[in-house]
């Protein structure tokens, strides 16, 4: 029997579900394996083919998306990225560790809270992978993202055979 809690079990206990892998919006694949590493494409906060939020993230009253809503959207990006990883390697129990997270936040001009938004991704990875979820990270503010998404997350993970 599996002597440890699997990532899939943690996802279920957290009340979450891995979605079907979203179709790419251009000419690329959702994830690529190179040696022991899997690189995912940037994932948008899509649920059933629709973005859960659109627009720029900021703290001003006229910002489209609040930092809290963007943080929640970052969690959805992670689920989509993990779905792409699982599709490629079979099961998330093969993930040895999360190596790096890159998060892009479509930001209002004066918004500097990108790390707080990308924390939505980092915290969920910690809950799903425990110690193996600790990772290096970049959190980048950008002017705009595809389809007017507020946040985009990509992962690099190390997998075992």
């Amino acid at each position: 029997m599996t002597e440890q809690v699997t990532p899939e079990e943690r996802i279920a206990a957290l009340g979450l579900r891995l979605p079907p892998v979203p179709a790419p919006v251009a000419a690329y694949v959702p994830a690529v394996r190179s040696g022991p590493y899997v690189f995912t494409s940037g994932q948008l906060p899509m649920v059933d083919g629709e973005l859960v939020e659109t627009g720029k993230v900021g703290t001003d009253v006229d910002a489209d998306v609040s930092p809290e809503a963007a943080k929640a959207a970052a969690r959805i990006c992670v689920l989509n990225a993990l779905a792409a990883v699982r599709d490629l390697v079979g099961e998330l129990g093969k993930v040895r560790r999360i190596v790096k997270v890159v998060g892009y936040v479509a930001s209002s001009p004066n918004f500097t809270g990108q790390p707080g938004v990308v924390n939505g991704a980092s915290e969920l990875l910690g809950e799903i992978f425990g110690d193996a979820g600790a990772h290096a990270r970049s959190a980048v503010g950008v002017a705009a993202l595809p389809l007017d998404a507020p946040v985009e997350i990509e992962l690099i993970v190390e997998v075992r055979d």
Binding site: R10, A13, L14, G15, G126, E127, G130, D131, G133, A134
Partner: peptide, 23 residues
């Protein structure tokens, strides 16, 4: 219910020691 995973450790360098997330 938003289910949370609690993975805590004692921070012995704090006075008095306190619980922190393991990360």
């Amino acid at each position: 219910r938003v289910v949370r995973r609690f993975a805590l450790d004692l921070d012995l360098d704090a006075d008095p020691p306190r619980w922190v997330e393991t990360d």
